[in-house]
Design a binder for these strands. Structure first.
Length: 424
DNA sequence: TCTGGGGTCCTAGGACCC
DNA sequence: TCTGGGGTCCTAGGACCC
């Protein structure tokens, strides 16, 4: 029962290139929030030795020498492109699991085994033609293998034109292929686990596939045991068509400049909490508690370091921005210490539950609750219509001295009429 | 000067109870 | 008073992912 994994090549870079085709064939990178480090690279940038997660300030010289074009990340654009991508894919299979912003599993059970490769090609061509994004397709009997087949397609190890179907390989071919790839490339095997595996002399994917299951279970966990099963074609990880409701909502940022005062920190916390509360209401959820944290810059080893964090319980689960901000500021005051240069702060909404499931009796003051709901609905409606952050709490401030840098951001081509691409 | 942000799941260990 | 085992629930931290 074959799964396909479709993954966009260098997704963020490819999104930028759709609107600036002259960048095709050129080295391009996209930077993280705050223009901190590199999170997406074109193949040409990879060929120049630009590493994933490399700090941008260390790469600027190389960039200048080689004409690397850098963009600040534009999540509004990427999210919109992602929605279009997922919508196209949904027409190719009865069941789809959206796995990340640029990856999706499809259930290809209904496709004849001998025509899977051609079907994969059709998916590729359709996405490229209608959206301009290059993708690779991996096809196999389990999700773990489909991820691996996708990797093989991307690296051009087997398959052709960006499609790899493991069903086309016989046992000997598969073993030889797996023996040539590091175990680190397996979905679910990260740095620590690969180190542990190495100590057991398990280096390649073939080593892991043929490893003793009981030993894997006892030395590691049931998770890795399932991975080994999946490498052997036994499907243990099912498709999840309906996204589970989120368990927590995090909003955090590094600051564009160091800040020291409680006022600036309070502004940032109020602002982040407002954003988190918006997401919470979009999900139709309420939070039972909120965690607040602040960091100094760990990279500045000679500067005094401090991290503070705390969790504030709400009187009752809430989705009201003002209540959440009050709680967050209370938490911040507990953990704030003067005399430090702060680099980052953040909030986490926790204990999320569906608003509908909260018993009416919990809302002891119905009147107050209705007022709050109306206020939040209005707030969200205005911000939706007029743009993010049009109406905010005074506590979130206007100066935003802590705001992140994003000096190289592209326009919101697809979501803002005033930023449409102009063809000259 | 300058080093991302947002998630999930599992496990171990402590608190508490019988 | 001490001793013991077993169960549940919660939380913190680790590991992983994109």
């Amino acid at each position: 029962m074959p799964f396909a994994l479709i993954d966009c090549n260098n997704f963020y870079v490819s999104c930028e290139r759709v609107f600036q085709p002259k960048l095709n064939g050129k080295p391009v990178v996209v930077l993280s929030n705050n223009d901190g480090c590199i999170i997406s690279r074109s193949n040409e940038a990879k060929a120049l030795g630009v590493r994933m997660c490399a700090p941008w300030f260390k790469m600027e010289k190389l960039a200048k020498q080689n004409g690397i074009v850098a963009f600040s990340s534009n999540y509004t654009l990427y999210d919109d492109m992602s929605k279009r991508f997922m919508s196209i894919l949904s027409t190719f299979a009865p069941r789809q699991e959206i796995y990340s912003i640029d990856e999706s599993f499809l259930d290809l059970e209904v496709i004849e085994p001998h025509s899977l490769v051609a079907y994969g090609q059709k998916i590729r061509k359709t996405v490229l033609r209608s959206l301009g994004l290059p993708v690779c397709v991996g096809i196999a009997d389990t999700k773990t293998l489909a991820k691996l087949a996708n990797y093989c397609a991307k690296m051009e190890l087997v398959g052709e034109d960006g499609v790899c179907d493991f069903g086309q390989l016989n046992d000997a071919e598969r073993s030889a292929l797996f023996a040539s790839i590091s175990v680190r490339e397996v979905w679910g095997v990260g740095r620590r686990i690969s180190e542990g595996l190495l100590a057991m002399r398990i280096k390649t994917i073939e080593d892991l596939r043929t490893a003793n299951l009981k030993r894997i279970r006892s030395q590691f966990s049931i998770v890795l045991e399932r991975t080994v099963q999946e490498l052997n074609g036994i499907s243990c990880i099912q498709m999840e068509e309906v996204a589970k409701p989120r368990q927590q909502i995090i909003v955090s940022r590094s600051f564009g400049t160091m800040i020291t005062g409680l006022d600036d920190l309070s502004e940032s916390i109020a602002y982040f909490t407002s954003r988190a509360a918006e997401k919470l209401r979009q999900d139709g959820s309420v939070a039972a508690s909120i965690s607040v944290y602040i960091y100094t810059n760990a990279f500045k080893e000679d500067a005094p370091q401090y991290t503070g964090s705390t969790i504030v319980q709400l009187n009752q689960p809430s989705d009201d921005t003002m209540e959440l901000v009050d709680a967050a500021i209370k938490g911040l005051k507990e953990i704030y210490r003067s005399g430090f240069h702060y680099k980052k702060s953040g909030v986490v909404l926790m204990g999320l539950q569906s608003k509908g499931s909260i018993q009416a009796t919990l809302f002891d003051d119905i009147d107050k609750q209705t007022k709050s709901d109306n206020m939040m609905r209005t707030l969200d409606a205005i911000n939706q219509k007029m743009g993010k952050g049009s109406v905010t709490l005074a506590a979130a401030g206007l100066k935003h001295r802590w705001a992140m840098r994003n000096e190289r951001q592209s326009p919101n081509y697809t979501t803002d009429w005033s930023e449409l691409l102009i063809v000259e």
